[in-house]
Amino acid sequence: MDYVLTLMPSMLKGWTVTLQIFFIVLIFALPLGVIMGIARLSTFKPLAWFMELYVWLFRGTPLLLQLLFWYFGLMAVGLRLEREMAVYVAFVLNYAAYLAEIFRSGIQSIDKGQYEAADVLGLNRKQTMSQIVLPQVFKRVMPPIGNEVINLVKDTALVYIIAMSELSRAARIHAVRDENLIPFAIAAVFYLLMTAIVQQFFKWLESKLDYYR
C-alpha cells in the first residue's frame, strides 16, 4: 500500500496530462466533425470529394502513424510542432474524420419528409439544419459518439510514442524502474474509472434525449 502511495504523485500528474488531451481533443473534434459531416454531403461536389478523400486518409491509416507524422515527420522537413501541438493536431484531425462519418450517416438517416415539411413551412436551409435536422441527428448518433469517446480515453495512451508523459507512460516508467507490474494495474484502474464516467455520462445524455421518438 505504501508502495502504491509513492507512485501516486507521478501517476496523478500523468493522469492530468491524459485528461487534458482528452478534453482538448473533444472540444475541437466534435464541432469539426459536425462541420465535416455536413461538408461531406455538400452539393458543391469538390468539397464533398475532398471530405471523402480526407476521411479515407485519416481513417485509413493508424493514428499512431499520424502521430509520428505530425511530430517526427514534420520535424524531418524542418517544420517543428511542439510535442503537445503535434498530439492535438493528430488526434483532432483523426477523431474529426471518425465523427464526420458518424454525423454524415446520422444526417442521411433523417427522413426526406422532414426537409420537405420544413421547406413548405418556409424555413431556410440554415433553420432547417439547426432546428429540425441536427437536433434529431444528435439523438441518433449519441451511441456511436459514446463509443468514439471511450476509444479516445484509451487512445490517449498512444502519445507515449512521442515521449509525452501521460498516464500510461508514467506507469511504464515505474514498472521498468521497480521491476513489477503494479503501476500498470493502477493505470488500468484509472482508465476504467474514466471510461465508467464517460459511459454513465452518455447513459444520462441518452435518457435526457429520450423524451421523444
Binding site: 419528409g113 420537405e116 413548405v120 413551412l121 437536433p135 434529431q136
Partner: peptide, 28 residues
C-alpha cells in the same frame, strides 16, 4: 400562400405539438 399536408404527416418528432405549430410563425 400554399399550405401542404403530406401523407406521412411529417411532424417534427423532437418538438411538442405546440412547438410544431409555433415554429413557422416565429422563424419565418
Amino acid at each position: 400562400k400554399m399550405g401542404m399536408v403530406f401523407q406521412n404527416f411529417n411532424l417534427f418528432p423532437h418538438k411538442s405539438v405546440l412547438e410544431n405549430l409555433m415554429l413557422a410563425p416565429v422563424l419565418v
